[in-house]
Amino acid sequence: MAITREGMTVSQTQQETDADKKAFYEQLQGFVGLQIGPPQPAPDEVNIPMIRHLVEAVGDENPIYLDEAAAKASRHGEVVAPPTMLQAWVMHGITPRSNEGDGPYEQMNRLLFSKGFTSVVATNCEQVYDRYVKPGDRLSMTTTIDSISEEKTTGLGTGHFVTTRQDYWDADGNRVGSMLFRIIRFRPAAKSKPKPPRPAPATTHDNSWWFDALKDGTLLIQRCKGCGELRNPPHPMCASCRSMEWDSIEAKGTGSIHSYVVTHYPVVPSFDYPLPILLVDLDEGVRMVMNPIDATPEDLQIGRKVTIEVHKCDPDLSLPFARLAK
């Protein structure tokens, strides 16, 4: 079978039959219920400095976590740790963890890797608290493989949801809380192709001069030689005096937003969405359609001043873009 440039045997995965998938799923089910390694002890007892670092960082002003008097007056009667901090007490810390063990979790991962399910994203975390832990508590954690789903396809790709269950225990062997943690191990969806170039404008004898000037970095405005009126987009006859004689002036490159739309659909692959499109009042008095540059839809406002810059979109096309004035 052919190995593609992505390194993944696409034809293999496409040819995988339902029976193969079922057999693989059955094989994965063999890991469900197994405990992963020995209990992990928390490196430190539950302590005030760690509580302080976290509640200050998240701006949690609940006084029961740091203020003894307030905690005493509460239902807890003493200082307690935030319940949502449960997981932090047993976190591994900065030392890299070895991936080379041969426990059930590593074996399960190797099996998943063998089918190309190499990427991982966490999707759910469900904590239940038996009691709030308090400074001085010495915790430990046990982990078991709780469930492994059938093959599923999500926006990320195709893979299996793996749920582990962490139980947290105090020094007396009483459970203080538990957590279900769900990840998806998946085969990434095929990488998106590079963006195609922007669709070329429809150029004619009457407007190609305007695009040609942009290629040199110059934004021009057509001017009637009969009455001097400026006009845009370029066209052959003056709407005021019907003269077909014209020349052009160079735009100063300043203006303001007359109106705008933000396009979400239909998606043309050359552009990023949401895609704002502006109608800009140039200070000379004509209007021009263009995209903004370095701006999100939230930044846009009718009347907002812009400066206009000419940028190369691809070797054959340069266009004006509006940069919002500070």
Binding site: D60, I64, T84, M85, C125, Q127
Partner: peptide, 25 residues
Amino acid sequence: NSFVGRYITDWAGPDALIRSVKVRL
């Protein structure tokens, strides 16, 4: 998770007892 906990007790006060927090990311 910590912000979810803070959000609850900012509203319910220090005597609130959080029993469970289930998040979908």
